[in-house]
């Protein structure tokens, strides 16, 4: 009985040691692209939703990783370390599009100042959708229309809308990953959805 007990501890100890050995991670940059390109790309595309931008961000991540490889302390796995670099890149990218001047602003559905502030702008009030019932939901055509409407949104709204609605991220996580506040997030979701509603009204429900 005691023998078994100690034997058990011994084995556990042995395995712990073996595990400890494995904990020391080293970087092998020559294998990065084969091993991580798809993973990092998929990670990025669910957040920025644009192939070219995702590709660029992944490329920058590999380059930055190579430049910073002497700072790697071996505490995290190679992949975790690369993802942490990528996360910074995504925040930087989002800051850039969020503050970009002169980018297409969203068409508001409400007056945003004056005595009518917060009221519907007359020509933008929701119209009745007459053919609502007969429009089938599982439909490629519908998907295309929606896709076009989302792509019409300013990039900063499209990113947040997709992350929240299509990828179904938690609010908290989006705020962390894009470095925005939750009230900021809800304003963007709101603007995205009012514009999408109008776009779908014109291009889908009114046909």
């Amino acid at each position: 009985m005691f023998y078994l007990f100690f034997r058990h501890i011994e084995i556990e100890h042995f395995e712990n040691n073996r595990y400890m050995d494995k904990m020391e991670h080293i970087l092998k940059p020559e294998t990065w692209i084969d091993k991580y390109a798809d993973y990092l790309f998929n990670y990025t595309i669910t957040r920025v939703n644009n192939h070219d931008i995702a590709k660029d961000l992944v490329q920058e991540t590999f380059f930055a990783g190579l430049r910073a490889k002497d700072n790697f302390q071996g505490k995290a796995s190679e992949r975790t370390w690369l993802v942490s670099i990528l996360k910074r890149k995504i925040i930087d990218y989002y800051r850039k599009i969020n503050s970009a001047k002169g980018q297409a602003e969203i068409k508001l559905s409400f007056y945003d100042d004056g005595e009518n502030e917060g009221r519907w702008i007359e020509e933008r009030v929701p119209q009745m959708w007459e053919n609502e019932a007969e429009k089938n939901i599982e439909n490629d055509e519908l998907k295309d229309t929606l896709e076009k409407c989302i792509n019409n949104l300013p990039e900063k709204y499209a990113v947040v809308f997709r992350m929240k609605t299509i990828q179904q991220f938690e609010t908290e996580e989006i705020c962390k990953e894009l470095d925005i506040t939750s009230s900021n997030l809800w304003v963007m979701i709101h603007r995205a959805r009012t514009q999408l509603r109008r776009c779908m009204e014109k291009n889908w429900f009114k046909n």
Binding site: S109, G118, V187, I189
Partner: peptide, 16 residues
């Protein structure tokens, strides 16, 4: 206001 009301409506679509 209508702007605020519809924003809450949007928020409630995510159960939040």
């Amino acid at each position: 206001t209508c702007d605020e009301a519809t924003m809450i409506c949007d928020k409630s679509q995510y159960g939040e």
